[in-house]
Design a protein around this nucleic acid. Structure first.
Lengths: 228, 228
DNA sequence: CTGTAATACGGTACTCAGTACCGTTGGGTG
DNA sequence: CACCCAACGGTACTGAGTACCGTATTACAG
């Protein structure tokens, strides 16, 4: 039962001290001391005092960048909705650690700001991806990309926060639902080369009917024979 | 021709030095020295080195809070759209100063993060206002409030950035147009007091959209909230 | 004119985050 | 054994931000 590596010990010590004394009241020296290492070693493993709480935002950002780069979806919004799932899954994998971080960021404004800045980087990535995908430098297209990216991130944050607060048992499903709402906000342009601008399918449901029973015909309507 | 007050001299000195040497390469001592005051005086007027660039975000936040508190609009979204105009007008009043700040925040990530954190506070204020206004603690209502707040802020940012880059001659009109798009995204619920609702849901699809992606929201429409 | 209180200011000293640099240790590997 | 290389510890430094104290200016009451 040898000691875990310094990086882990530092993180454990940091979270423990933050819980005991609060973030500002804890110095880097305190953390290093409790971890049984020198102060230099702390900064070797974590760029800053804040970074010990957000260890791998950069890695996650790259992961998402790759996912977007290799994604083959029919619309940019679907691709982004798919990519943002990675973020949620990452948090869920962290489990209790993510919740402890949430408790900290809720109290310490400096950490909250840092978290917000990280999220903004995701949003920027999404915005640029959508704008590139649309390839339309128009003002309105740019605005549309901005709105889409903001909505995806907002929906993700909504679900994530619910899960962090313990209000959600199945966050992945909730994310799907939330993303469905977002997709519904932005109907695809439905560009038709022949100019008939069909593309619109109107479906009438009777409430109380089983959606799953309708699904096959729905799918036929949308995918099989567009324009009817 | 007496000297302007120390607060102004400090801001001028700061911006000049930031332009000359860059933000990180400028120390607070440098700023104070050029302004002809002591270092202590700098911190008396500005809480931090960053604060000299963002002097009145707090004041503006309070202004918006008041505006929302005294607003009598038909929908929460309109009230927020109206309030966010204050932010844009504030930047426009600052004129060239706002553009110099934009040039700085574009280069220095620490400043960009700070700006983003400020904007997030507006967004949070909007979100809480909308949620309170709706008075519906449901998950979907909460998500809707989140999406609305994010969209308003995104639209504002879009217009503001265009103006800061000198790409917009009439930002106020552009903001109105952008807010129009946002309002179009979120049609009013259209409550039916007479109960004539026949339980039929009409859904308009655009082909080219992923049916699977839409499915969750569809399911919610049919099963979760009949009659809407 | 004088005492006094408020305000703004300058200076010193301190804490702490973050950086730079240097020396040391402890394994592997030829 | 000699060498190397990675991880570590220590020291010293810069710079932001805070606390505290003394001082000059102004205003104002008596």
């Amino acid at each position: 039962m040898s000691k875990p590596p310094a990086r882990i010990r530092l993180a454990d010590a940091a979270f423990a001290l933050f819980d005991e004394r609060g973030y500002e009241q804890t110095t880097v020296d305190d953390i290093a001391e409790r971890a049984g290492v020198g102060r230099t070693t702390f900064f070797r493993h974590y760029r800053s005092k804040e970074a010990v709480i957000f260890p791998d935002h950069d890695r996650l950002l790259e992961l998402i960048r790759d996912r977007l780069a290799t994604s083959s979806h029919r619309t940019a919004l679907v691709a982004v909705s798919d990519a943002v799932r990675l973020v949620l899954l990452h948090y869920i994998e962290e489990g209790d650690l993510a919740r402890r971080r949430y408790a900290l960021t809720s109290k310490v404004s400096a950490l909250r700001d840092r978290e917000i800045a990280s999220v903004a980087r995701y949003q920027r990535l999404f915005r640029e991806f959508i704008a590139d995908w649309m390839g339309d430098p128009t003002t309105s297209a740019s605005l549309r990309a901005e709105l889409m990216a903001a909505s995806v991130v907002a929906a993700h944050n909504h679900v994530l926060r619910r899960w962090l607060r313990g209000e959600s048992a199945d966050p992945v499903t909730e994310l799907d639902e939330a993303m469905g709402e977002v997709l519904a906000l932005f109907p695809a342009p439905g560009a038709r080369p022949d100019g008939t601008d069909g593309g619109t399918t109107v479906v009438a449901f009777r409430t109380g009917q089983d959606l799953d029973a309708l699904l096959p015909s729905l799918r036929r309507l949308v995918e099989g024979d567009p324009g009817r």
